[in-house]
C-alpha cells in the first residue's frame, strides 16, 4: 500500500493550523463488483481504520468503510504544537497495515 502525506501550506509556524492530506493507494473494493472475465464477485477489500499520531500521541482516529473512493484521500486540520513526527497508520479489512511518517518542522 503506497501512501502520501501532504502538509498545507508548506511554511507554517508553531501554533498555526495546517491541513494534513493523507492519501493511500488502495482499490477500496466494495464486495459488490464482479470480475469482468470470470463473473465472480470481487471480495470486499477496503481500508477500515486510519490513525493520525503526533509524537506517538493520538490526534485523530478514523473508522472508514468501502464508500470512500478508490485511492482514498483523508484530510484533517492540525494545530502545530512544535517540532515532531507525524505518523499515520492505515489498516485494511484484510489485516494489511501501513505506517507512514512526516516530519513537522515549524519555521520561526
Amino acid at each position: 500500500m503506497k501512501t502520501l502525506i501532504k502538509i498545507k501550506p508548506k511554511d507554517y509556524k508553531a501554533g498555526d493550523i495546517v491541513k494534513i492530506d493523507f492519501m493511500a493507494m488502495h482499490p477500496m473494493e466494495t464486495g459488490m463488483r464482479k470480475d469482468k472475465d470470470s463473473g465472480q464477485l470481487i471480495p470486499a477489500h477496503y481500508i477500515d481504520e486510519v490513525k493520525f499520531m503526533f509524537n506517538d500521541q493520538l490526534i485523530t482516529k478514523m473508522v472508514i468503510w468501502e464508500s470512500l473512493s478508490v485511492n482514498p484521500l483523508m484530510s484533517i486540520s492540525f494545530k502545530v504544537p512544535g517540532e515532531g513526527t507525524l505518523k499515520v497508520v492505515a489498516k485494511d479489512n484484510k489485516g494489511q497495515s501501513v505506517e507512514s511518517t512526516a516530519k513537522i518542522t515549524p519555521k520561526g
Binding site: 492530506d21 473508522v63 468501502e66 484521500l73
Partner: peptide
C-alpha cells in the same frame, strides 16, 4: 452501506475539519 467515515477528533486538531472523496 450509508456509512462513509467516522472521524474521532481531539482538541489537538485545532479545527474540526474533515475532507474526503466518496462514492
Amino acid at each position: 452501506n450509508v456509512r462513509c467515515a467516522n472521524i474521532y477528533l481531539t482538541p489537538a486538531n485545532g479545527e474540526a475539519f474533515f475532507g474526503t472523496r466518496v462514492k
